[in-house]
């Protein structure tokens, strides 16, 4: 036993820090997914809210619009179909926020200390948590994609693949927000504040429930600084074009910047840049944490 301990010491020190950090990212990510899998009931529970919006609000408003104007929401498009991409965005948003909360729980339960005292670069904590949360959010989005036929949305395999990629990018950026906020926060109470004053407005301003064109002058800028707008927009473009809607109509229902429709790549670029900045903030915060 004694000889072994001596042999292991130097060997351990020789492992490069980059490799050790990668391993730590993997382990932290893995733990998140393990807990996610253990807590399947909660996962299903987290789908209730999006489904309520889709089924009740979607069906209700679709019928109301037909009854009022005798027509669909826009050019043959049902309201339910219109909000479907927005609700995916919502599910990703709330699930990302949950990852932020899980960090505060870890702090409360002391587990965070165990990670912070380990011989790893603290950036691994921020990155591992962000990837873990993003993976969970993506799984939630995936379930909604699988349910798409029930909401009159029919997607090809390639569209679905593109959507999964998009959802992961958005989930990554939004989880980075949650992790960055939680990296500085000591209590759940503070998080409640964030939830009410940042997350809810972000949802309503994102274009999830209504198009972001022709809004009052005070509202338009708010929707444009809402990062979620750049998440809902590309999902909607892919879903609507997969449903065969003409592109002028899609452009009319989508996000514009300075009067120009925003291409999907720009949406994704903005989203990823935003996520990268917040992840960097989270890394700095964890590095300086005592």
């Amino acid at each position: 036993m004694r000889g072994e301990a001596e042999r292991l010491g130097p060997q351990r020190a020789a492992v490069s820090t980059a490799w050790a950090s990668l391993r730590a990212v993997y382990m932290i990510w893995r733990r998140d997914l393990l807990r996610f899998w253990r807590d399947r009931a909660r996962v299903l529970g987290s789908l209730v809210q999006p489904l309520l919006f889709l089924i009740l609000l979607g069906t209700g408003l679709s019928s109301a619009l037909r009854a009022a104007g005798g027509s669909t929401f826009a050019g043959g498009l049902d309201y339910q179909h219109f909000i479907y991409p927005g609700i995916i965005g919502m599910s990703v948003l709330f699930s990302s926020i949950f990852s932020g909360m899980s960090i505060i729980w870890d702090r409360d339960f002391g587990f965070l200390k165990e990670v912070l005292v380990a011989p790893i670069d603290r950036s691994a904590v921020a990155i591992g948590k962000t990837l873990g949360g993003a993976s969970q959010a993506t799984i939630g989005g995936l379930i909604l994609l699988i349910l798409s036929p029930f909401f009159g949305v029919h997607l090809g395999a390639l569209d679905a693949l593109e959507l999964v990629g998009l959802i992961f990018c958005i989930a990554f950026a939004l989880t980075a927000v949650g992790v960055a906020v939680a990296s500085r926060m000591q209590s759940m109470m503070g998080f409640q504040f964030v939830l009410n004053f940042l997350v809810q407005p972000a949802f309503f301003l994102s274009g999830a429930l209504f198009p972001l064109q022709g809004l009052p002058a005070w509202m338009t800028p708010l929707t444009r600084i809402d990062p979620l707008s750049y998440g809902v927009d590309p999902i909607r473009r892919v879903v609507l074009s997969a449903s065969g809607l003409p592109s002028p109509l899609i452009d009319r229902l989508s996000l514009t910047l300075l009067g120009q429709p925003v291409p999907i790549l720009l949406d994704v670029g903005i989203m990823l840049a935003f996520g990268a900045v917040l992840l960097a903030i989270a890394v700095v915060n964890f590095r300086h944490q005592q």
Partner: peptide, 29 residues
């Protein structure tokens, strides 16, 4: 190695998983 005054286990994981997590972070071959 450190045993904190206040608990610091992940109680949603099993005992073995807690140890595996730790051994992995500390590069036990």
């Amino acid at each position: 190695g450190l045993v904190f005054q206040d608990p610091s286990l992940d109680d949603q994981l099993t005992a073995r998983e807690n140890l595996e997590f730790h051994a992995f972070l500390y590069n036990v071959p």
